[in-house]
Design a protein around this nucleic acid. Structure first.
Lengths: 204, 204
DNA sequence: ACCAACCTAATGTACATTCAGTAGGTTGGT
DNA sequence: ACCAACCTACTGAATGTACATTAGGTTGGT
C-alpha cells in the first residue's frame, strides 16, 4: 500500500473520495507547470474550491499530497503496461499517453528534474524508476534478439539508455514547445530504430 | 550587451571582478543541483564567503544574478561553436562539454524544466534557444545533403528534433544517474546516426 | 451522537530585499 | 607627499511577504 494511502478515514464517503480525486488532478496540473517548490497549497485549494486548511483535511501535508500524485502516475503507468507487446509497439503507445494524460506525464518530467540532487527527497524514487525503465526496455531488446528478429550486434543496455533518453528528451521539447509535431518525431525515431534492430547492417 | 552587465561600477577593480566570477561559479553549481526557486541567496553567499547583503552588492537582485549566470553559459556555448565541423563532429564534442562544465550544462537543463510554463520568466528565452538549436542542427543535415554525403530521404527538421531530444534526454539521465556510461551512449547514438545518414537504405 | 468535511484565524519560519553604517582604496588638486 | 571627496566592498539588523501547518470551531450527512 502506497504511503499516500494513509488517510485518516476510510474512503467510504463518496463526496470525500470525489474531492480527493479532484485535488489530485488539479495538483498534477500545477506540478506539471510549476514544479513542487513553486506550487502552493493555496493555489491547488482555490482551484479545487477549498480553503488551504480544507485541502489539508484530505492530505495531511504538502509532502503527502506529492506522494499521492506520484502514486497515481505509477498506477496509471502500470495499468497501461502490456507485456505482450514488442518494443516498437510499446514505444509507439507512448505518444498516446502524452496526449491522454499530459499533466501526469509533464509532472513526472518536471519533478524528475527537481530531484536530481542526491539529497532531494524524491531522488531515490526517480533514480530507481529510471533504472527499472532502462532495464525493461533492454529486456525487450534481448527478447527480440533471442527470438532472432532483432540484430544481435546491438548492445541492449546501451540502446535502452538511448531510447529512454530520446523519449524523455522529446517529452521535454514538447512541454517547452507544444507546437512541435510530436507524433511524427516519435514515428520517425521508432522507424529508424526498427530499421537498426531488424536487419543485418552491411553498410559503413 | 547582456542585461546582467548593468552593474553599477566599471570592472576596473580586480578584487570585485574576481569575487563576481566566484559568485557566478557557485551560483551555477547551486542552480544545477537545486534550481532557481530552491536555491537561496544565503547559500550562495555563505559558500562564497559573503553575507547575503554582500552578495547583493554585486548583483542587485536574485533575478539579475540568474540572468548573469545564463549569459555566462551562452558565452561559453558561443565560444565553443565551430561552424567548420560537420554534424557528427559537432555532436561528439557535446560529451566533452558535459565533462568540462557540468555545472553550466546541468544548470541549463534544470532551469529549462523550471521554465516550461509559458508564464515563467525565462520561458521565452529557453523556447527561443531550443528553436535555434533545432534549426542549427537541421541546417547541418541539409548542408550534408547538398554536398551529397548524407542520404536525401532524411527529413532534416524531424531528425534535428530527434537529435536534440536524445542529447537533452541523455543529459537528464546522466544528471540523475552519473554512473551511466555517458560516452559510450553518445558514441553509440552518433554511430547509428552516421549510419542512417550516410548510406542509401535498401532495406525494409 | 458521531464523524467527515469543511471554515477562519493564528503561528512560525524562510526568504529576498532594504537600510544605515564601516573600512579601506583611489584620485585629483595642492 | 598630503588630503579631501568619493569610490568599492562589505556587515548586521530590520522589514515585509509568502507560505505550510495548526488550533479550534461549525455543519450536515448517516
Amino acid at each position: 500500500m502506497p504511503v499516500s494511502d494513509q488517510r485518516p478515514y476510510a474512503a467510504l464517503h463518496a463526496k470525500g473520495e470525489d474531492r480527493r480525486q479532484r485535488i489530485l488532478a488539479v495538483a498534477a496540473r500545477h506540478l506539471a507547470r510549476h514544479g513542487w517548490r513553486t506550487t502552493t497549497l493555496g493555489q491547488i485549494a482555490r482551484e479545487t474550491g477549498l480553503s488551504t486548511a480544507g485541502l489539508l483535511h484530505h492530505f495531511q501535508s504538502k509532502a503527502q499530497l506529492l506522494h499521492a500524485v506520484l502514486d497515481a502516475r505509477d498506477a496509471y503507468d502500470t495499468a497501461r503496461w502490456d507485456p505482450s507487446r514488442n518494443l516498437i509497439e510499446q514505444l509507439e503507445s507512448v505518444a498516446e499517453r502524452f496526449r491522454e494524460a499530459p499533466d501526469l506525464v509533464g509532472m513526472f518530467a518536471v519533478l524528475r528534474m527537481e530531484n536530481i540532487d542526491p539529497e532531494a527527497p524524491l531522488h531515490d524514487r526517480f533514480l530507481a524508476r529510471y533504472r527499472v525503465a532502462v532495464e525493461l526496455v533492454a529486456e525487450l531488446i534481448r527478447r527480440g534478439q533471442d527470438e532472432g528478429i532483432y540484430h544481435p550486434d546491438v548492445n541492449p543496455a546501451l540502446k535502452a539508455m538511448e531510447i529512454i533518453a530520446f523519449f524523455n528528451g522529446i517529452e521535454t521539447s514538447w512541454l517547452l514547445d507544444p507546437t512541435i509535431p510530436l507524433d511524427e518525431a516519435i514515428r520517425e525515431y521508432t522507424a529508424s530504430l526498427a530499421r537498426q534492430l531488424s536487419l543485418p547492417r552491411d553498410m559503413s
